[in-house]
Design a binder for these strands. Structure first.
Lengths: 240, 240
DNA sequence: TGCAACAATTTGTCGTACATTTGTTACACA
DNA sequence: TGTGTAACAAATGTACGACAAATTGTTGCA
């Protein structure tokens, strides 16, 4: 019998448990999950709890459930992969370098343009938040934990500074992407001062309202990581 | 007593009804929705149905519900606005030109880069799908309905051709964005042949594997619309 | 062989009862 | 008067049982 964690309420825990299992590939695509009745037994909970979990997962596009057919995994392209929970679950699934590449390919579209918008439209508080994060990166240079956190805040502040709800909504995506990065690359640490200076260039371009330069500076920042990854992937074929 | 549509099952209809109401701003941010009991009465359904709807909406980030506090609208920045349902609901809410601008600002990040990736990585079936859509645009030149559909397919095929799950996942976003566009702009019709040719340039660049040119061609395509909108917004201040 | 009727399976909906969480009120005590 | 605590109240959380509805498979008859 599967065991559930203690936090939150029962249906939320069920949701997490099942969601993680699906995202991590424990059930293959198109396959049928156990029926509600079976899940009740397996987890030792009432049908109410199971049904609420199923509803939440189907709201995220992971599954669909119909009479007689039972519960089916939806094709992966229908999953709401920008959902915060899904991002978290897939992060826990120890993503491959290939996935990291996909994250970076997406970031390289979003973040340079976000920086450009920030340069044009950001309110002053937003700009200040970027500066604060940059300063914290400088201070935390020795502490890897804090540095990652400040780094994440830097990139997210820029999303907010775009003053566009769609960019802002990418914050969990960017956060996850950076967390994935840190698992695969120590290249950043090779030249910490250089990295900080590259971030500073983005910040200054935004502050001075130079959209084109902000965009380019951010592009370079991400493109470097992307280039590194593509190189690694070619070398190893398919290593984790 | 509110009336529900006929389609789907009860909790899905409840979800749509409530979701639409929230997205359209019938309840203001931070406000409390009626309690489960009140919703049961208002819609004349059982608590089960209401609760399942609430769970689905909270899975989409629209609301949160806790004992004693009741059901609360979440701040808008926590909504999963890339969720297909949310996009559809907000489309039904007659979006303003300001929202259209946000859509275009996002598309101008995504689609040029998608085209670049397509030029580098697309499998041949994917390229063919783009070509098919382009051909259908040509044929449907007179029929506005069909033309929009073909146009949408063109842009979505390119997302698929990027061979990156995150870009592919943007398909509902792009579909919605184009549907929003069509409500606000007839500029496209001014010079139909020119528009088709601009699309064709993107297609040919992708086919010939020229990432840089594909990117630029797509950029121009969207930037034109964006420029038009920004101009309109400056003119009118804040018209619909 | 084709079609209709039936049966079985699974989710969908309802109602009730009680548990749990959390905010508020009221009271006792210093 | 202020403070801590106990009791209460209001909302969601969980469980169970019953039946409805939908879908699919099967059986049996023309």
């Amino acid at each position: 019998m599967a065991v559930l964690e203690r936090n939150n309420n029962l249906s939320q825990r069920m949701t997490q448990q099942l969601g993680r299992a699906i995202v991590c590939g424990d059930y293959s695509q198109g396959e049928s999950l156990p029926t509600e009745a079976d899940l009740c037994e397996e987890f030792g909970v009432s049908r109410t709890a199971v049904r609420e979990a199923v509803k939440m997962l189907s709201a995220k596009g992971l599954i669909s459930s119909r009479p007689r057919q039972g519960i089916r995994i939806m094709p992966e392209e229908d999953w709401n992969i920008f959902d915060s929970d899904l991002l978290r679950w897939s992060l826990e699934g120890n993503p491959s370098m290939r996935v990291l590449k996909e994250f970076l390919q997406m970031r390289i579209a979003i973040e340079p343009e976000a920086a450009a918008l920030a340069a044009r439209f950001a309110r002053s508080e937003r700009k200040q938040a970027i500066g604060d994060a940059l300063e914290r990166m400088r201070v935390a240079a020795e502490n890897t934990e804090n540095e990652l956190e400040a780094d994440i805040d830097f990139h997210i502040s820029i999303l907010y500074a775009s003053e566009n709800r769609f960019y802002i909504r990418m914050r969990d995506f960017t956060r996850t992407a950076l967390n994935v990065s840190i698992r695969h690359t120590n290249v950043i640490k090779a030249n910490p001062d250089g990295v900080i200076e590259d971030h500073a260039k983005v910040y200054h371009a935004i502050c001075s309202g130079n959209a084109e330069r902000a965009k380019n500076a951010m592009f370079l920042l991400i493109d470097e990581a992307l280039g590194f990854i593509e190189q690694e992937l070619e070398k190893n074929g398919d290593a984790t």
